[in-house]
C-alpha cells in the first residue's frame, strides 16, 4: 500500500530532534517507524506515525517544515536475505530505490520495509505480482 510518511526538515542544531519527538508524544501520536538522514548542514527526519495528518499539524505548529510524502510499505520475512527478493524485482523493473528503512510489524512478526522509489505505483504492482504483500499503517 502507498502510505503517508512525514518528512521533517531539521536544522543542524541541538535539541531539534527531541523537540519533534516531544510534540508527537504530548499529542499522543505514536511513531511506528523512523529514519534520520543527515548531512553536515541539516537533517531530514522521516516518520511513520499512526495519525499522519494530526502529526503534521502539531509538528508544523512548532515551527518546523513538514511535508507529507507518499512511500511504500512492504511486508517481508524477517530472515537473512529477506529484502533480496524485493530488491531484485525492483531492479529488474528498472525502478530506483531512493531510500528505505525497516521495522518489525506489530502483530505479524514480519519485517516491514518502508521504501521511496522512482515510481510508487509501478513498484507496488511489481512487488505484488512477485508475491510480496504491501501493507498500510495498521500493520506497523
Amino acid at each position: 500500500m502507498i502510505i503517508k510518511q512525514l518528512s521533517v526538515f531539521l536544522e543542524n542544531k541541538k535539541g531539534r530532534l527531541f523537540a519533534a519527538a516531544d510534540v508527537l508524544a504530548k499529542n499522543n501520536i505514536n511513531i511506528r517507524a523512523l529514519s534520520l538522514a543527515d548531512t553536515s548542514e541539516f537533517g531530514i527526519l522521516r516518520l511513520i506515525v499512526d495519525k499522519p495528518e494530526e502529526g503534521k499539524a502539531v509538528l508544523s505548529e512548532t515551527g518546523v517544515v513538514v511535508r507529507v510524502t507518499n512511500v511504500l510499505g512492504v511486508s517481508m520475512a524477517d530472515v537473512p536475505g529477506g529484502t533480496l527478493g524485493a530488491l531484485h524485482l525492483l531492479a529488474d523493473a528498472g525502478i530506483n530505490v531512493e531510500y528505505m528503512y525497516a521495522c518489525v510489524g506489530q502483530n505479524t512478526g514480519k519485517a516491514i520495509m518502508v521504501m521511496q522509489v522512482s515510481d510508487l505505483e509501478v513498484a507496488e504492482g511489481v512487488l505484488r505480482r512477485g508475491g510480496f504483500e504491501t501493507v498500510d499503517i495498521d500493520h506497523f
Binding site: F9, A37, R46, E98
Partner: peptide
C-alpha cells in the same frame, strides 16, 4: 529560512538548493 515550497524529502534536492 526553509519553507514548505523549498523543502523536498530528498536529501540531494535540498543539498542542491543549498
Amino acid at each position: 529560512e526553509m519553507s514548505e515550497n523549498f523543502f523536498s524529502d530528498n536529501i540531494k534536492e535540498v543539498e542542491k538548493l543549498e
